[in-house]
Amino acid sequence: MLAKSTVTQIKDLAQRYPSKQSAIIPALWAVQHEQGFVGKEAMAEIAGHLGLPSSLIEATASFYSMFLTKPEGRHDVVICVNAPCMLRGADEMAAYLQRALGVRDGQTTSDGAITWHSTIECLGACGGAPMMQVDHRFEENLTEERIDTIIERLRQPVPAGRASGAPAAEPPKRKPAAPKRARSEN
């Protein structure tokens, strides 16, 4: 069952757009934010609240790569290996990270801390290549040492009050990043 606040959010979304169908993707986000993934049952619930057939919700959800269909590790990491990142050593970083985590594509470390999805396509951080994305936060200008530091941070035990298996892909809302002052650094 979805939390009350998520249901309210979905109902508000349905009112916000000229067509309630436009609320499907935002509703999927709301659910993933709450539960960490969007399962079949949750999609049926969305369908109920929007007054749309379940099949429509599923058809839409399956098109978009960011909606997770099952629960994953507390943290989620990927590395871009498209050409601009490849030019700056992304392959080596991806290999190093997988060795350091001891997992293969789609696997989660045994402590449940980190899911290595796979290599990924350009995330708009080519100016800071090689890059890795950690729970929707970009870590740029990677080196092996920086990867070590990041992994160590992610392996920290769950802080009290946060259930394990809670949202990984959707971290709590953050304040927008402070604007960069450098002329060209992205």
């Binding site: 916000r16 757009y17 067509s19 169908q21 436009s22 609320a23 499907i24 993707i25 935002p26 999927l28 986000w29 429509l56 058809a59 839409t60 399956s62 098109f63 978009y64 790569s65 960011m66 909606f67 396509e121």
Partner: peptide, 25 residues
């Protein structure tokens, strides 16, 4: 209205973007 996509390069193409904004694939 600020609308968040969900990982599909093709949605940058304007007609695909509009289809996506309407809630479809």
């Amino acid at each position: 209205i600020l609308h968040r996509g969900a990982g599909a390069y093709i949605c940058g193409e304007e007609t695909a973007l509009l289809t996506s904004l309407e809630g479809y694939r």
